[in-house]
């Protein structure tokens, strides 16, 4: 397994995959910072802590940017093999097909983890620059940095499946973009939010209540456990489907 990962690591050289994984967290943080610095006055008057307000605000950016970035990263990583006609080379090596699949999955998860760290550190930096009051709420910030990624686990394995299945990456990317656009509507009611494209929107440590059409208190997200479970279950389902589809794929 390690040797396949080491090889995949080298293959990413001079591609956009790693830069993207660092760029999109910066994009999220930059947007968040700009909005916060403009809205600071109106926000400090609220009852909520600035840290919590930042998390709620940033979540609206995160829930769209992360699935998009993942769609692009997965597609880039897989099309490396499609474009270079290298599946047939890899399959003719004495290495199990499963380890190629897991190596790709591992690469994406690792990049997501690194992106999560960047977002986490970015939150602290923004808080310090804008002089938020109170101690740094590490658990909250960690939650906002990593829970949305956990929510995209089904999207990762789903996109991985599509990108491997279709040589032409226009299709998986179109599905990825379409899903991301739909997310906003899917998460609005209980039934459609069971669909896996809604999870990134719902995987947040806190949410803001809306009372009489006004933004009110920020409270802990009670549905977290439920959507974590759903994310893992659907993520694993798509992983198994993708894995077996991959293993019986011949190079035709």
């Amino acid at each position: 397994m390690n040797h396949v990962i080491a090889s995949d690591q080298l293959k990413m050289k001079r591609t956009f995959i790693k830069p993207i994984s660092f760029l999109f967290p910066f994009l999220i943080l930059l947007l968040s910072f700009l909005i916060l610095s403009m809205q600071k006055e109106s926000m400090t008057s609220q009852v909520n802590s600035m840290w919590e307000s930042m998390v709620v605000l940033t979540h609206f950016i995160i829930m769209f940017v992360i699935p998009m970035a993942i769609t692009i990263m997965v597609s880039n990583l897989i099309s490396l093999e499609h474009q270079n006609n290298s599946w047939k080379l890899l399959f003719a090596l004495p290495i199990s097909k499963f380890s190629f699949y897991f190596s790709k999955l591992y690469m994406i998860l690792k990049l997501c983890f690194l992106s999560g760290i960047v977002i986490f550190l970015g939150f602290i930096v923004i808080g310090k620059i804008l002089n938020f009051k109170g101690d740094i709420p590490y658990a909250l910030l960690l939650g906002e940095a990593f829970l949305p990624f956990l929510g995209t686990f089904p999207i990762i394995t789903f996109q991985l499946w599509l990108s491997i299945r279709f040589k032409n990456q226009a299709f998986p990317i179109a599905i990825g973009v379409f899903g991301t656009v739909c997310m906003f509507f899917l998460q609005m009611n209980k039934i459609t939010s069971m669909f896996f494209w809604a999870y990134p929107a719902l995987m947040t440590p806190v949410k803001q209540l809306i009372i009489d059409g006004n933004l009110a208190e920020i409270v802990p997200n009670g549905d977290l456990g439920f959507y974590t479970l759903l994310s893992i279950v659907f993520g694993l389902i798509f992983m198994v489907i993708g894995m077996f589809d991959f293993s019986r794929q011949s190079t035709e």
């Binding site: 001079r14 270079n84 080379l89």
Partner: peptide, 8 residues
């Protein structure tokens, strides 16, 4: 056709 990684 030979398989190789063009970016390497």
């Amino acid at each position: 056709y030979p398989s190789f990684y063009a970016n390497l």
